[in-house]
Structures are given as structure tokens and as C-alpha cells.
């Protein structure tokens, strides 16, 4: 077994195992068009703001 074969097999097996894990966990499969910008933010620094006269 030549070094290039060993390197390729190790890399390919690692990559296949990696995508196996990702695919099983559903990672990378979420819809790409979800709009997450609607997360509710904090109310701001209300205490500090109250000091503004």
C-alpha cells in the first residue's frame, strides 16, 4: 500500500464518516430560505434611557 493510497483512503473514510454523522443528525438539511431576522431583541437599556432628560 503506497503512501498516496493510504492518505486517500484515510481522508475518504474520514470524510464519509463525517457526512454520515452530519446527514444522520440532519445538519445541513434545514431550509435555506428561513427568515430568522424576526427574533425578538431586548427592550434596550431602559434604566439608562430613563436617565435621559
Amino acid at each position: 500500500m503506497t503512501p498516496i493510497r493510504i492518505v486517500f483512503l484515510v481522508a475518504a473514510l474520514g470524510a464519509t464518516a463525517g457526512v454520515g454523522y452530519l446527514g444522520f443528525m440532519g445538519i445541513g438539511g434545514a431550509s435555506a430560505d428561513l427568515d430568522r431576522s424576526i427574533r425578538v431583541g431586548s427592550a434596550g437599556n431602559a434604566l439608562a434611557s430613563s436617565k435621559v432628560k
Binding site: T16, G18, V19, G20, L22, G23, I27
Partner: peptide, 15 residues
Amino acid sequence: GASSARPPLVLMVIF
């Protein structure tokens, strides 16, 4: 609890 075929599909295309 669904899995995704996308990662192995991408790697398949690379191979």
C-alpha cells in the same frame, strides 16, 4: 428526528 441526504450527496458529487 429526520435525517438529511444533502451532506452525503455533496460528498458523492465531489468523489
